[in-house]
Nucleic acid binder design. Structure first.
Lengths: 120, 120
DNA sequence: ACTTTTGCTAATAAAAAAGTGAGTCATGGC
DNA sequence: GCCATGACTCACTTTTTTATTAGCAAAAGT
């Protein structure tokens, strides 16, 4: 969506952390707003751009497009294009890695609900 | 550190997501830069402000102070002040919840290293 | 009396992320 | 020929997050 300044301390600190531990890369990815919800939405059967958009009612087109690209880039989803149809239909599906991640996020969600107190 | 604009779409979307699922709150917390590393550092025995600062060499004072406050707020760490000493010594320790979270993050870290490919 | 130490805070600037609104492209039906 | 549809893309603005720099308080050492 936008480019990062490679010589900023901000960027260099991020690189430092990501090199220290892959968890930082994963969290950085997961923290992109709507990203996990897009995954879950696909998992629940909203496999087309317009379906997801409808499901996550406040997401905007460009953010959804970006999140789909990220998920595809990191092989958490796969994109299938039906070019013969018109307008071209595109469908998304979770990969095996995506399914596994989704399960771990489920566990984490459970932890968040049971053990954490976000009420304040 | 700074205040959020309560009437912005940005904020309202965040609220929408956090109300939808506590996982979004947890991820939002975990995504604050250095936060998990501060936890891990404390866990490894760097229990004082200056120890952590030394361990995470590029973290700045105000960010560290903020992250410690957040961790304390969400009861992932406890702060103990030794006021009789001078200058006042302060020590941090993980709570039970903190320990549990740390374990789950370990699992996630393992997933990130084994199943994800961040090389591109 | 002055300096040092520890554990911070506050103001501001820089960078990154998210949101807004419009536009594109290749069909295919009217 | 004109409009609609689906899945996006682009330029720009706003909001949020991070980093930079400076400073503070209380007691103890010199």
């Amino acid at each position: 969506m936008a480019e990062r300044k490679l010589n900023s301390t901000n960027y260099q600190n991020q690189v430092f952390l990501e090199e220290k531990c892959a968890l930082n890369e994963l969290i950085h990815l997961l923290s992109k707003r709507w990203l996990t919800e897009v995954m879950f939405s696909i998992e629940e059967g909203n496999v087309r751009f317009s379906n997801i958009k409808e499901d996550l009612k406040y997401i905007s087109d460009n953010v959804l497009a970006d999140r789909l690209k990220l998920l595809e880039k990191y092989k958490l989803i796969v994109r299938t294009e039906f070019a013969k149809e018109s307008p071209t239909r595109v469908e998304y599906a979770l990969t095996q890695t995506g399914e596994t991640l989704s399960e771990w996020l489920g566990v984490l969600c459970n932890f968040a609900e049971k053990d954490m107190d976000f009420s304040t």
